[in-house]
Every structure is written in structure tokens, then in C-alpha cells.
């Protein structure tokens, strides 16, 4: 049952609260990299785009979602927990010994996780494999892959992009979470990959670019992607790293805030800003 725009907006805020709470509890992790991706992840899992059954997570006809930017695991765990793949309060075990919610996703330990990721650049090839499997088996499932923007420096992404175009994989959508930062600085400064949509278009992909923290735009983009025939789709999602707690990050004088949790003393302020 697809949620309404208002419901999705409210759920996105709830997902954000989960992200900051679980990473602060863990004492490590990548909250800012997770926060930029919240609207797309929420829309895919709760907006009626992804076909799944939490009681039968390996259902062969399910749609697939692959988080290639595996360090954003907290946003994946938040939506999977809210969807009911595991008890929601398990998110507070993130990164602890014995918890299946590892620092980066591990598909062998947690239902709903479609790929073990964390070494960047590999998710799109996995997605091509799923999309080819659908073709071989004459199934109509769709495969979504989310990458980061810094991740596009990995050459394998472009190997995969070329092969997806060769096989005209219109059952494959990649969302590039263009949050403008990577580990050591601004993506443009580290390795400028613009125009990202232009590059995918040159490889033969259908492309869209939009404000990826605007739920209304996200829903339109995902609908359009499913209507494309004969080509894979790239959605260039222009986002802000740390979306939802930008005022706090400004105050902390760190708009990238890469790979570290909020201090417990900042948690209440973050939750208040998220609303």
C-alpha cells in the first residue's frame, strides 16, 4: 500500500530520527551520508515502487534495491526496520558485536539486504546481474541501485553502465545520491565527474536530474523511471549531505561531517531540527 505524499514526508523525518539515534548510540558510522538519501529510500520502500514481502524476503519475484554506497547503511536499516524486515528496535544494535546490522551491509546476516557492499563501485554490476537474471527468467521485477557521487570515481561503475546499455536494461534504475561531498572534501574538488547525467546519457542511458530531498520531485522521478522502455535509467538526485540537520552541522562548522556520529550532547538538538 503506497503511502501518501504527506505520509511519506512524515516517514522521511522518522527515518532521519532513526539514523541519528542509531549512529550516536553506536558511537560511529555515517549519518550525514545517510541523511542525504532519505527521500529516495523512503519513497522506494513506502511509495509503492518496490515490490517486497517482509515474510518472504527471498521471494523470486520481488523487486531489488542495492545500496552501492554501503557506508549509508543506517538509512537502509531504518527503512528495513520500519518496513518490518526485523524488529524496529534492533536498529539500536547497529555496529555492535553479534548484531546483523553491521557497519556496512551484509546480505548473509540480515533479511532485506540484497547486497553486501562497502567497497565502492560494485553495486551497479550486481544490479546488472539481477536485471539480466530477470531477463533470463522472463520475470518482470525491477532493480534499483543507489550510488554516491564520489563513488563514480570507480571505473567499474562505467563498465557496468556500458553493459547495462548494451542489453537495454529498462528493468534497472540507478539513483546517484549527488550530495556534493566525499571523505576528504567537496566532490568537485576531489574528482570532478560533472556532468554526471551527461556521462550516463553518453553511455546510452535515459537520465533525469532533480532535487532529491524534495519528496514530490522524487515521486515524479521514480514514476518516470518505470515508464522508460529500451534503456536503463539514471536519476541524478541533487541532495545535501546531512539534510535535516544542516543548521546543526553549520553550527559545528563541518558541513561534510563525514563518517562520524553526532555527540550525545548534540542529539537532542538534531532531533529537534529534524522535527
Amino acid at each position: 500500500m503506497a503511502e501518501s505524499l504527506e505520509e511519506l514526508r512524515a516517514r522521511a523525518q522518522s527515518v532521519r530520527r532513526d539514523i541519528v539515534r542509531m549512529t550516536t548510540e553506536a558511537g560511529s558510522g555515517h549519518p550525514s551520508s545517510s541523511l542525504s538519501a532519505v527521500e529516495f529510500m523512503t519513497a522506494i520502500y513506502f511509495g509503492g515502487f518496490l515490490r517486497y514481502d517482509v515474510k518472504n524476503p527471498h521471494w523470486p519475484d520481488r523487486d531489488r534495491f542495492i545500496l552501492s554506497k554501503g557506508h549509508a547503511a543506517p538509512v537502509l536499516y531504518a527503512v528495513l526496520g520500519q518496513a518490518g524486515f526485523f524488529p524496529h528496535d534492533q536498529i539500536m544494535t547497529l555496529r555492535k558485536l553479534g548484531s546483523p546490522l553491521e557497519g556496512h551491509p551484509n546480505m548473509t546476516r540480515l533479511a532485506g539486504v540484497e547486497a553486501s557492499t562497502g567497497s565502492l563501485g560494485q553495486g551497479l554490476s550486481l544490479g546488472v546481474g539481477h536485471a539480466l537474471a530477470a531477463r533470463v527468467d522472463k520475470k518482470d521485477f525491477h532493480t534499483y541501485v543507489m550510488t554516491g557521487d564520489g563513488e563514480l570515481g570507480e571505473g567499474q561503475v562505467w563498465e557496468a553502465a556500458a553493459s547495462a546499455a548494451k542489453y537495454k536494461l529498462d528493468n534497472l534504475t540507478v539513483i546517484v545520491d549527488r550530495n556534493h561531498f566525499q571523505q576528504t572534501g567537496a566532490s568537485e574538488d576531489v574528482l570532478d565527474m560533472d556532468p554526471i547525467d551527461g556521462k550516463f546519457a553518453a553511455f546510452g542511458w535515459h537520465t533525469q536530474a532533480l532535487q532529491g530531498n524534495d519528496m514530490e520531485e522524487v515521486l515524479i522521478a521514480l514514476k518516470r523511471a518505470r515508464a522508460v522502455k529500451g534503456q536503463p535509467t539514471c536519476i541524478l538526485s541533487l541532495t545535501r549531505k546531512g539534510q535535516g540537520i544542516l543548521k546543526l552541522l553549520t553550527k559545528l562548522k563541518d558541513e561534510n561531517y563525514h563518517g562520524k556520529p553526532l555527540a550525545p550532547k548534540d542529539l537532542d538538538e538534531a532531533l529537534a531540527e529534524i522535527g
Partner: peptide
């Protein structure tokens, strides 16, 4: 119908194999 030549790209080759196997092949 069960054979794909994905070009000279071994990294992608192995990744695609992982995806196919994840989907039950």
C-alpha cells in the same frame, strides 16, 4: 539465451556474476 559477452571488463564481469547468483542463478 544464457550467455552474455559484456566486453573487456573483468571487474564488471565478476560483479554481474554476483548479481546473477544473488537472483538465484
Amino acid at each position: 539465451d544464457r550467455f552474455f559477452n559484456i566486453g573487456i571488463a573483468e571487474s564488471n564481469l565478476v560483479g554481474i556474476a554476483g548479481g546473477l547468483a544473488s537472483s538465484g542463478k
